[in-house]
């Protein structure tokens, strides 16, 4: 079963870090991805540009600047992983750098519609 991990963090914290510190976090994500791969748990992962770059297409056809949810923490990336249960997905989330630096991770099961 696949699970998506949506990573939420206060972007301003990340951008207030020095370049070396930012690179260290990127390295942690790479190590996390490698760990997922070594266990056969990695499906995919993407990092996102800052929330201010987002544009939203509204139902009426209008385009608005900024992310859909205007919150203190912004979505910064997504991992999709293989896990045997929600508990196992949670165990992976605990190892994610975003959790270690105080962010929130939303974990959602990805339904399997049988096409592989």
């Amino acid at each position: 079963m696949q699970y998506a991990l949506f990573l939420f963090e206060d972007e301003s914290t990340f951008f207030s870090l020095s370049e070396d510190e930012q690179m260290a976090i990127v390295q942690e994500h790479m190590a996390f991805s490698e760990e997922l791969q070594a266990a056969g748990a990695y499906v995919t992962g993407v990092a996102l540009e800052p929330a201010e770059t987002a544009r939203c297409l509204k139902a009426k056809g209008d385009i608005e600047d900024g992310p859909f949810a205007d919150t203190k923490e912004q979505m910064g990336g997504v991992y999709v992983i293989n896990a045997g249960s929600m508990a196992e997905a949670e165990a992976w989330a605990r190892k994610c750098p975003v959790h270690k630096s105080g962010g929130t991770i939303e974990i959602r099961p990805v339904p399997d519609y049988g096409n592989a």
């Binding site: 760990e35 266990a39 748990a41 896990a83 045997g84 249960s85 196992e88 165990a91």
Partner: peptide
Amino acid sequence: PPDHIRQERIAA
């Protein structure tokens, strides 16, 4: 499997 998920995997 690695330690942190081994129990879950044994369960499977």
